[in-house]
Simulated scan of single mutants.
Amino acid sequence: MLIREMVGQTFGQRWHYQHLLVERVPFAWHYHPEYELTLTRRARGMRYVGGDVAPFGELDLTLVAPNQAHTWQAQSRADGQTQEVQVIFFTREWLEQLTTGGLPELTGFADWLRKVQQGVVISEACTRRLVPLFDRLHQSRGLDRLSCLLQIFGQLPRDNEARLIGGAPAPEYQDKRVETALAWLHEHYRDPVTLADLAGVTRSSEATIKRLLREQLQDSMTGLLAQLRIGHACNLLITTQMPIQLVAEESGFPSPSHFYKQFGLAKAMSPAAFRKRYHLRRAAQEDAPAMQSSLIRAQSD
């Protein structure tokens, strides 16, 4: 199930920092109105951001745009090491206030954010350069911590190898009816949903909510539903041996044929091919010989 995550503040500031040490990163499909910049270390698995599903490696830094359904998923490591996750949440409103209220140096970062669609995957080279700043961010407090944050912000637009995740750019202003529609779709995407249902929830006409989704998200209700359902289906394909027809049903698709068509359009491969390529148990089995070889070399050294 996809949930609306509540994000707090860090020492009274209008941004929030989290640090987690975990044995594994579970699938937890969620969204929130804040930007999220997440650094994962010593983890390997799948990253889901909106309709984008891709593998990630031992070091991954990704920015997620507001209200985009997302999660990371990684199994426990064979060597027993913990996986580290550092997360920075912030809002566009807070950033704009800083930019206009005395920190015009942030203008470049604010302009770069306006180009962000569903998210951005930062290149490995840039991520490695930023790791020392994330270390300082975790260890510091007060102005030193804020300084680290601003230095991270300053580096991101300089990454010419970053991969933009497709979709509509986050709007400068979002109608409350669109926020209501997104929240309701995130909660009910596995149920049969009609435009009339969405119009009723938002207290608007079908034509109005259809127009608002197109204007502010450059998408339709069916497009948003497909993203959420395919993300859910990808998780089931990767983590279970559930029959594909049941995966389609559990993800909210009205029929297997519709699921196959939508999945093929989104992923350019069949559900079976996706499962074969990315299934976590299979990936773990393939990684095991490499891990064992690495341990043997370390012992011989």
Rank of each mutant, 00 (worst) to 15 (best):
Y17L: 14
F134T: 05
Q75R: 13
H138N: 12
R275N: 11
G231T: 13
A233L: 11
V85T: 14
I3R: 15
I152V: 15
A168W: 10
D191K: 14
H138E: 13
L213S: 05
D79E: 10
W15F: 15
E187C: 04
S293E: 14
P169Q: 02
Q13Y: 10
Y31D: 00
V116Q: 06
A272K: 15
Y17K: 07
V178I: 14
H232E: 12
I152P: 02
R145N: 10
L2E: 08
S251V: 09
F263L: 09
G45E: 00
R145G: 08
F263W: 07
P132E: 06
E215P: 00
S76T: 10
V7L: 06
L228H: 11
Q81H: 09
K267I: 09
L137G: 04
K276I: 03
H186F: 13
S220G: 10
Y35I: 04
A65Y: 11
L212T: 07
G51N: 12
Y31R: 07
R114Q: 12
Y17M: 07
A273Y: 00
P254C: 07
E179Y: 10
Q68L: 08
T107K: 12
G167H: 08
D60T: 00
G80Q: 06
S140K: 13
Q285G: 01
R203F: 06
V25G: 00
L280S: 11
G231L: 09
L59I: 09
A181N: 08
T71F: 00
K276L: 12
L164C: 04
Y31F: 04
L164Q: 06
R14H: 01
Q139H: 12
R128H: 06
L133F: 08
A78F: 10
P243S: 02
P289H: 07
E187P: 00
W29Y: 13
E124F: 03
M291T: 11
S300F: 11
L228I: 10
R163V: 11
T202F: 07
F11T: 08
H186G: 09
L95I: 02
L2K: 10
D191I: 00
V201Y: 12
L295N: 07
P66C: 07
L225P: 11
H188M: 03
L106I: 12
Q216N: 08
T62L: 00
M6Y: 11
A74Q: 01
T202A: 15
F56A: 05
V53T: 15
